[in-house]
Amino acid sequence: MIWVQLHSLIGSYPLALRGLAMTVVLSLISLTLGTLIGFALGVLRADDSRTHSGVIGAWVDLIRGTPFLVQIFLIFFILPELGVELDAFTAGIIGLTNLASCFICEIVVAGIRAVPTGQVEAALASGLSRWQRMRQVVLPQAMRVVLPPLVGQYVLLIKDSSVVSAIGLTDLTRVGWLVVQRVPNGLLVFALVGLAYFIVCYPLILLASRLEKRLGAAHAEVQL
């Protein structure tokens, strides 16, 4: 019986590759866009301008307070009613990019706030403009604090991409769901799906903790 199943599984090889490719492409695009947008928003938000901070803050609360599944449903089912033509892939990109921007924004804000005020004062005292301060003094030092949680966030987002299977997008998880209909061995099929995710995510998890160790130790401010 198991040999028949294995045979069937191997026959699903092309489908599995498509699913893996979909997960990878979805993740890469959303993470890249999300990082760019998240950084921009984070810099804006850390600027202490009340209007920026308030609006962005409300949006962050909205994204952090609701399940990603619900956000995907909202995007996929409601945007078309507002006139936006949408397929599952685009909805997935929008949803995941949105999620990524939100969390990365928060990470960047925390990193900027971690830079000692003395540094900002020194830059201020030299007559550097706000943008020069950010670019030359604050952001380079903030990166040290930002990098470990950023990589950790990438892992979380790659895992969250599996939720997009709920609107029919043929990603790795959906491939598993489709295959298990024909090959009723849930343990085997999803163990393989899990293995695929593991191979992608585990190295990133290791990278995050190695970054944490190396950057955390060097984070000690210049000793007086």
Partner: peptide, 16 residues
């Protein structure tokens, strides 16, 4: 930690 919750859910749902 390295696999999605949805995959774990399906693993149990279809596997148990």
């Amino acid at each position: 930690r390295a696999t999605p919750l949805l995959a774990q859910l399906y693993f149990l749902y279809f596997g148990l």
